[in-house]
């Protein structure tokens, strides 16, 4: 009896956490959206730049042709990983795959929590809070305050190397950390095989799928991990 009331209590408090973060999250995100548009609108239309609405439309359509799919696909791709609370953080802070997700994985593995569990969700939210704090501080200090000085004192090659090679330098390590902390052999094999097939077979054969590549791999990993799961009785005793 006490065990069930305890778990009912846990469910109720997670329910409250969900409600609170949805409210705070959507309000702050809407504010961020408005503020991020106010600046460019002022520059384009109230600073004597003679920008016409059609110039903006043409430019936006051209950008949409490349990124329009990602506007929809990225939130879909990351929702199962982030959960609803962290969605509002991640898509405002940005740099999701190269910073926020790695931070969440490190934090979950630091306290041995699995993604998708209640502990895992709270750990991910706190990890993103930590990452946001570091990110805001370092940006304000190194770019906002010291940026114009640093731009003349950091060798060009160093900046060039960071720009060219940050992704491979980051991704190899994150993938290993991810595999080690998930401890899920079959989904790991499924995911790597799916990524190899999509990247080296599907996309070269049908280049139009390039924008969906990550999403395709994520969907394939979910579907085939489920189809090829270990069919034993202890399947759901993880949490």
């Amino acid at each position: 009896m006490s065990a069930t009331s305890l778990s009912a209590n846990a469910a109720a408090s997670m329910e409250r956490f969900d409600r609170q973060t949805s409210r705070y999250g959507s309000i702050t995100m809407a504010l961020g959206l408005i503020l991020s548009l106010a600046g460019p609108i002022y520059i384009a239309f109230f600073s004597g730049m003679e920008v016409t609405a059609s110039m903006v439309w043409v430019a936006l359509l051209a950008v949409a042709a490349t990124f329009g799919v990602l506007w929809v696909v990225e939130p879909l791709t990351y929702f199962p990983i982030l959960g609803s609370a962290a969605m509002y953080q991640a898509f405002m802070i940005g740099n999701i795959s190269n910073k926020l997700l790695p931070a969440a994985i490190v934090a979950q593995s630091a306290i041995d929590a699995k993604p998708g569990t209640k502990r895992g969700d709270l750990a991910a939210v706190m990890a993103i809070c930590g990452a946001a704090t570091v990110h805001l501080t370092s940006l304000l200090l190194f770019v906002g305050v010291l940026g114009t000085w640093l731009v003349h004192s950091i060798p060009v090659e160093v900046i060039e190397v960071a720009r060219l090679y940050i992704l491979p330098s980051l991704m190899g390590a994150v993938l290993v950390q991810c595999i080690v902390s998930m401890k899920a052999l079959r989904p790991t094999i499924v995911a790597v095989v799916a990524a190899l097939l999509v990247n080296f077979v599907v996309v070269p054969l049908a280049p139009a799928t390039g924008a969906f590549a990550t999403a395709l791999v994520v969907i394939a990993s979910i579907v085939f991990s489920w189809v090829l799961r270990k069919r034993t009785t202890q399947a759901s005793s993880e949490h």
Partner: peptide, 10 residues
């Protein structure tokens, strides 16, 4: 979540 995370980073 596990499969999605492994898929995304792979």
């Amino acid at each position: 979540p596990t499969a999605a995370l492994l898929g995304a980073f792979s």
